[in-house]
Design a protein around this nucleic acid. Sequence first.
DNA 1: GAGTGGTCTAGACCACTGT
DNA 2: CAGTGGTCTAGACCACTCC
Lengths: 233, 233
Amino acid sequence: MTAPPLNTWQDVHAEVLDRISSRRWKPGELIPNEIDLATEFGCARTTVNRALRTIAEAGLLDRKRKAGTRVATNPVRKATLNIPIIRQEIEQMGQSYAYALISSEIGTPPVDVRARMGLAAKDKALHLIALHLANQRPYVCEDRWINMAGAPGVVDVDFTSISANEWLVANAPFTNGDLSFSALRADAKIAEHLGAKPNDALFILDRITWDRSTAITSVRMAFHPGYRMQTTI
Amino acid sequence: MTAPPLNTWQDVHAEVLDRISSRRWKPGELIPNEIDLATEFGCARTTVNRALRTIAEAGLLDRKRKAGTRVATNPVRKATLNIPIIRQEIEQMGQSYAYALISSEIGTPPVDVRARMGLAAKDKALHLIALHLANQRPYVCEDRWINMAGAPGVVDVDFTSISANEWLVANAPFTNGDLSFSALRADAKIAEHLGAKPNDALFILDRITWDRSTAITSVRMAFHPGYRMQTTI
DNA sequence: GAGTGGTCTAGACCACTGT
DNA sequence: CAGTGGTCTAGACCACTCC
């Protein structure tokens, strides 16, 4: 009674996940090496490798050369969040999207923003405050600084007709970025923009994007009260 | 002046990312197929495939059989969040970890929790409220329901000495879960637990975990004011 | 129908690391 | 030193999907 061969890496993937969750392979335990598993499953080592590598990337296996592969004892689960473009997020919900510029001026960013962006005290940046609306209701308020050295041509753009994000993705692509999520109490100003009550708790997304080592933009997005960001693991 | 061959998939990965961010390959544009790229780079098609597949998984390329590979026009960036085990997160910051059980009782979950967990009105569950502390200061307060059918033996556990999470990872592994992040205003009770002021904005993580289709636990973690969750893209 | 990505295979060499 | 995972190669077949 030999098992039928597992022909695809997805088959192997599923089988290994099953052995982990059924505790046939227990946390901390060393599992057979790739060659033995390939023999057992009746497939090539490459196929086993692809499956195990994928599972390891998800955090459920720990792999080390020579030491072999172990079931993770404390699976630090990795969740993949889709950071949406606001317009798409709203339109995918079947709601109408609108955008409104609240203010636009050139100035010196506050010291914390300068520090994160790596700007000097004399550097100027474009400061935008804008609102994204879903079905005419405030959805998210963004407070953004754009490094004029990192986004050539930005001074000439009319941001009343195009959102900063859309202009930037088309004109100043970034190579990497830092994200952080937090919660903040609405102050009077932002509460007014969002149509929220003062003291409402707001979900906050802070993002800085870079082109190699020069900062392009730093933005704080304050979502309307009740907003949730969801994913699966 | 032919370029030197790119020998590893990381080389190809870097080169392709460079062509995208430098706009040599523009958004929406069709890029050469794998065979041509392999010829150009002087490597095997498998190597090109690995690199392009990785980039596509990150959202910067759209690949379709027969249609070919295009640079994504609206790169929906995917951020990978590490969902930490609280004890580890605290210990990695070099702080001391402590855990305190606030209450433990068997009861019927509120209707929204029942709905999300797929429990009937008559089903009983174990309700725990507990606090995780970093350097003796409240770090996160968890409000948890455990499905007794999904976690055999849970009634006999002494949760004053071990945290629910640690017992569950060791004894009732999950196959999948739903996560959501939001912000919530602290009510009087939770403010007291966390040593926060009422109305403080709290970062909230809701998680339900499943073993196949039976819910194991539903937990709401309310982090101390000022908490941030960070990642990069 | 034909072009493209998706994957499998068998074999090989390399890089890391525990002993 | 030796065992393990990490990767490359060349060739092959398949699955999807556009035309």
